[in-house]
């Protein structure tokens, strides 16, 4: 495993720790999109169905279990925890899951590397992950006050995929990996979706101002 891949996984893990900290310590999920969190559960469940079938490494298995467990518990807190659920911005988090899930599923059926259950689900999870942040970005745009934790959470999520892009470049040139258009292009799209957010995040950080996205 190269340094970029590790950095990507660690920023991903850190983003989840940050969100769980907000939920557990501050008892708040204000500014967090439940739609996006539910999409992540679907992403992880469909991608990690191979967990029980194929063993890659101890690291790999542990990380998969952590991502599955944390994403499910975040959704649980936002839906059912009696204090946390009251901080959820239900009225502004209106993006419909199905508009993302259905096209991604159809695309995975049409464009995949092999027409098998595992491969189609894996491809679907990549397509869905690429766009899963959209409800969260819409929610941020509609929020007047974005607290630091939420801003940092989204920034780390974006940084995670940017590190993966570097990881793929490294694997291609240094480790002689094959060309893999499906994960590369969906990963590139996923990172590109954050471009606008990155711009305003860095600008607010440089000017020491509170983060605010233009509507």
């Amino acid at each position: 495993m190269n340094a970029f891949r590790l950095a990507g996984d660690m920023t991903h893990l850190l983003s989840i720790i940050l969100l769980l900290h907000k939920i557990r310590a501050m008892k708040s999920c204000a500014g967090i999109s439940l739609r996006t969190q539910e999409l992540y559960v679907i992403v992880f469940v469909t991608r990690y169905v191979d967990l029980s079938m194929k063993y890659y490494s101890f690291y790999n298995s542990i990380m998969k279990i952590v991502f599955l467990g944390t994403s499910i518990s975040i959704v649980w807190y936002m839906r059912y925890h009696k204090v946390v659920k009251q901080t959820y911005n239900k009225d502004v988090d209106t993006f419909r899951h199905i508009f993302l899930i259905l096209p991604c599923f159809v695309l995975a059926l049409l464009i995949n590397r092999a027409f098998t259950v595992i491969e189609v689900l894996w491809t679907f999870s990549l397509y869905l992950e690429a766009v899963a942040i959209l409800p969260q970005l819409v929610l941020l745009q509609r929020s007047r006050n974005i607290d630091n934790l939420t801003g940092n959470y989204v920034f780390l999520l974006g940084a995670y995929r940017a590190f993966y892009l570097l990881n793929w470049i490294y694997r291609f040139f240094i480790e002689n990996h094959q060309v893999r258009w499906i994960p590369w292009l969906s990963g590139l799209l996923q990172t590109a979706i954050y471009a606008d957010f990155f711009y305003y995040y860095i600008k607010s950080w440089k000017n020491r101002e509170k983060l605010k996205l233009p509507a």
Partner: peptide, 10 residues
């Protein structure tokens, strides 16, 4: 020249 599959990623 291909080695491991992308499925080893998270």
């Amino acid at each position: 020249p291909s080695k491991a599959d992308m499925h080893d990623e998270l």
